[in-house]
Design a protein around this nucleic acid. Structure first.
Lengths: 130, 130
DNA sequence: GTTGACTCTGACGTCAACGTGAGGCTTTAG
DNA sequence: CTAAAGCCTCACGTTGACGTCAGAGTCAAC
């Protein structure tokens, strides 16, 4: 297989994460790229996927510590690793429920905003254009 | 009409917001309670609803500044106030779309976690893929 | 071999929504 | 009246995920 490696800038472009963010993820143990002789980080295609997972979970309110525990179980392009996951499942269930709750809150907020928007759209001497 | 006023502690208990948070909301112009001669804040039943709206919108990722603009239009138990809302509607639309996007992200995260949870709960590390 | 884009390692700055005392009034119970 | 809650106003501390320099090394091209 081709060892097509990416440098940090390219990975950044392909994931939307800033170089600083990528270094931060590494600092938190979420990524462990190889290094070139000169010290440059070498990322793989796999890391592209991983970073997207990281961002998804961050957006869902998980902290880097929690993500660090989840990632080894999520990698599975070809399931292989079997970390300690009994305790993990309970933790994940908690997170899942929290996220479900968050979605509910967001939908409430949506309802609130929708109400306001439609009310004011309908009764304003509309100047409805951008 | 009953002038049933609440002090900060009571409002705190009824909304889940800490007293510090309630003072912060006031500082940000989201609440403007009257004061007793002694300086104590006097909240009304209306404020209970308002605080819940605030928390909902905060949970949805709106900042206090944005909320300050929305609240006057949201109070309406009996529609009365008419602030400057033409520009507001566009802003709200933006926020609404952002929230919709957030919900999508959360659902993605949910999918990820569900996958992991069910896979490990079934305890048969079968070969799954993403 | 030199430019210029890219990357490296620190290390301090940021921002929002509060937390957390410090020190001192106000109100309520008895 | 006194004591205990409860509340007041500063004002600095916290947390997480980065932003933003500074100073220096690396790499591909010309």
């Amino acid at each position: 297989m081709a060892g097509v490696t990416l440098r940090i800038g390219e990975l950044s472009r392909r994931t939307g994460a800033s170089p600083r963010a990528l270094r931060y993820y590494e600092e938190q143990g979420l990524l462990t790229p190889d290094r070139r002789p000169g010290g440059y980080r070498e990322y793989t295609e796999r890391d592209v996927v991983t970073v997207r997972h990281i961002r998804t979970l961050l957006a869902a309110g998980l902290g880097t510590v929690a993500i660090a525990e989840v990632l080894p179980c999520a990698i599975t392009e070809e399931g292989e690793l079997l970390p300690a996951c009994p305790e993990l499942v309970t933790g994940l269930t908690v997170e899942r429920d929290r996220i479900t709750g968050s979605i509910g809150e967001l939908q409430q907020a949506l309802g609130l905003l929708e109400t306001i928007i439609t009310r004011w759209s309908e009764q304003a001497p509309a100047k409805a254009s951008l």
